[in-house]
Design a protein around this nucleic acid. Sequence first.
DNA 1: GATGAATGAGGTTTCATTCAT
DNA 2: AATGAATGAAACCTCATTCAT
Lengths: 206, 206, 206, 206
Amino acid sequence: MPRPSVEAERREQILRAVCEVVSDSGFTSLRVTDVAERAQISTGSVHYYFETKQDLIQAAFEWNFARSLERRKSILSRKSSALDRLRAYVDSFLRQDAQTIASWHVWAEFWAAALHDPDLRELNERVYGKWRTMVSEIIRSGQAEGTIRPGDPAVLADTLVGAIDGLAIQSLLGSRRTKSRQNRAVFEHLIDAMAVDPERAHVHST
Amino acid sequence: MPRPSVEAERREQILRAVCEVVSDSGFTSLRVTDVAERAQISTGSVHYYFETKQDLIQAAFEWNFARSLERRKSILSRKSSALDRLRAYVDSFLRQDAQTIASWHVWAEFWAAALHDPDLRELNERVYGKWRTMVSEIIRSGQAEGTIRPGDPAVLADTLVGAIDGLAIQSLLGSRRTKSRQNRAVFEHLIDAMAVDPERAHVHST
Amino acid sequence: MPRPSVEAERREQILRAVCEVVSDSGFTSLRVTDVAERAQISTGSVHYYFETKQDLIQAAFEWNFARSLERRKSILSRKSSALDRLRAYVDSFLRQDAQTIASWHVWAEFWAAALHDPDLRELNERVYGKWRTMVSEIIRSGQAEGTIRPGDPAVLADTLVGAIDGLAIQSLLGSRRTKSRQNRAVFEHLIDAMAVDPERAHVHST
Amino acid sequence: MPRPSVEAERREQILRAVCEVVSDSGFTSLRVTDVAERAQISTGSVHYYFETKQDLIQAAFEWNFARSLERRKSILSRKSSALDRLRAYVDSFLRQDAQTIASWHVWAEFWAAALHDPDLRELNERVYGKWRTMVSEIIRSGQAEGTIRPGDPAVLADTLVGAIDGLAIQSLLGSRRTKSRQNRAVFEHLIDAMAVDPERAHVHST
DNA sequence: GATGAATGAGGTTTCATTCAT
DNA sequence: AATGAATGAAACCTCATTCAT
């Protein structure tokens, strides 16, 4: 008798394989065969779990998003100050470890794919709603604490989230080392500008 | 070898068709046949001017970039203040006309393609060098005028350019109307933060 | 990877089809579609077993050679005299049955193809090494028996093998009936010249 | 007014180009473009002189034959002995100069092409009639002189012509140097066997 | 006479999908 | 539950041929 979890396990195994292949070789040239090879199963099995390639891709993007979200959850529940949580959040996207980079690759491919796919566009709405909410909640709590300047949290959140995406792309496309350092300067600047003066001074002195 | 006069015309005709198709239907499903149809010529003719599909794509991205640049050149030579030029520059990317949107579509596809293509990555280096230089020159001249606050022009330029890209993506993927208005708020905020106080106050009062 | 049992069968089926098509319609106009039709499978299946047309052709030539060799093996192990084996060997190439003619067609196409393909040239080296060895072994054993005149077996073998090829070509290109008879006269002459006198006299008297 | 010879000149220029391309790259991959490039004219001009590719090929093979024949004409009219003329004739085919090798390449491609083309097969009949006649005339005159043994001149001619073709192929496909030397041994053997004894002894002593 | 831009039929090859096992 | 052999539609690309200049 098969373990009840076998399906969930297999699906995870396949979706992880999709993201790895997309990250390594891009979405345009993604073949079901490549996914099967990466997951060490047959193409027949891939189709056993996902009716069409389209389904497979949609599911893989969803899975990538769920994992991205998972990795940031702990940041929100931290006891630290709002500014620290904001910095931790931004930092989590600027990391240069394999997992973060791979995930960004998938995101970049996702955007291009979503431009012409209503289902993916809907997924994007959900995703960016999440990101924006997370950031504006932190800002709002910072404003309540008195550590973050007044101003529309939605606008401030959009600024941060937008800058993260835009700079991430250039980071992926450019020479790793330099970009990473430059990007950190940009976000220090942005976050410092949101802080009330004392905090700002403190940071500058370090 | 085709005669220069005909060749230049035909190449332009074909490259325009590529960008139109990429913008309409995406890069992943781009077929040479579609390009030929759009340009109202035969597939054979497409291959007469571009050996491979790869060459065609590379050339189309270059062409898209050249046009994007061309459209911004006049902004730099304006006699207005640095802050006005900065606003005009940013505005030129936030426009919602067909041409601007089409161009952004091509850029989004370009990034994804460049992730796995060294030649395109090199093109990206050139392109973003240009954008960053343009913005930081304006900032530098504003600082000389005394209308823009001191601070590393490179960091400020990166912030703006990054935010433009990131917000453009979300604008492309989201519901047009709302996004456009929100994005303008973000950039007002960003540019105001760069202005020296009197100017800033003035803007807020409008 | 296909299961060995099915794979061997299918490959044989396809290679046989290639040789049939080459023999019927020539190598220059060989299309994968023709091969697929002849083997009663789809073009996709042909490529399932042979990556490229080039691979397919190379394999078909190898297969044709293996079969040519197989058909001659029994001649070598016969208990008859060296001269008889020599005659049987030569005869086996002069036969006008469909299989022999088809095989010659493939050989002729092979030579032309090999002129510009190092891999095929290497295969030719192997093949002609085999033919020359077979013939010179027979001659050597005939000299040991005392039925064949002394002389360098390599030179005698080259003479026979060369003449076989050259006359076969003309036989393929000319009117069948006459050529066949003429060719037999040529080889009778050549072999008689190799025999020691008594045998020679005997043959001439028939 | 154009020189009357311009057509003949151009045709010769093109046919020479065809033979060069066939010799270098083979017949299977022969493109009209290659011929045009080699002849330093446009593809349009090639078609101006030769309606179709088929016509072009046929004409090129004819031209190659005419030149091959031309190169041997002087041998026949020599005042030397029949055996010497026979040796000169055979030698003329075994030479390893560029022209001879190129010509053999064209012949090999010709045979393969002729297998499936009645027009080329007819040309072959004419050609081989010529070769056989040339050789058997020499043999006949040698027999009249008393320097060549009795025997059907047709059979002896076929033996020589056949061996020349067969060994030439292997020479083209194998390592040049060795083959050439081996081939000369074969023909020495064949021609010696045709000589009456005194001559034969003489040759062996050299 | 000569050109070369343009064509489009047709070739090889790819790959998502199916289905018997 | 899983496979992998087999498919065939469709993609890219080639190239002989045409024709306006």
